[in-house]
């Protein structure tokens, strides 16, 4: 009895399969899903078909206009700087260039008392 019911259970469960009462149901189900998925599949194919040249071309389309704009801006600033009055050039001798920035040694200051009791500061440069 129990085995019969177990066997019957599987058979009964098959009545839940829509195909049992509606032949061709799964075929239509499958077709409906694929038809509905068409746009997404096309989008994926296009994305996958993008070749290296396509990628490079997409870069080129962005890069070239940017480079042109940058070149125009650079030219503009260069030309603008060229029209300004030139500052006078200060010429320096070699000695000045060599000695420029070098501190001259200074003798230490000596403090001595003069005959009047005042202080005399001696500071002599070499």
């Amino acid at each position: 009895m129990r085995d019969d019911i177990d066997r019957g259970r599987s058979e009964v469960l098959t009545t839940l399969d829509p195909e049992q009462m509606d032949p061709g149901y799964w075929h239509r189900f499958h077709r409906w899903v694929l038809n509905s998925a068409g746009a997404e599949l096309v989008r994926r194919r296009r994305r996958a078909d993008a070749s290296v040249s396509d990628v490079m071309f997409s870069w080129w389309r962005t890069l070239v206009p940017t480079a042109v704009v940058v070149a125009i801006l650079a030219g503009f600033f260069l030309l603008r700087d060229g029209t300004r009055p030139q500052q006078p050039v200060a010429y320096m001798s070699v000695d000045e260039l060599i000695l420029d920035g070098i501190e001259v040694p200074v003798m230490p200051a000596f403090e001595t008392a003069d005959s009047d009791g005042g202080i005399v500061v001696v500071n002599e440069a070499y």
């Binding site: 694929l34 998925a37 989008r43 994926r44 996958a48």
Partner: peptide
């Protein structure tokens, strides 16, 4: 299917 293969998704 990730590359849009209809047969694979099917």
């Amino acid at each position: 299917a990730r590359t849009g293969d209809e047969g694979a998704f099917g």
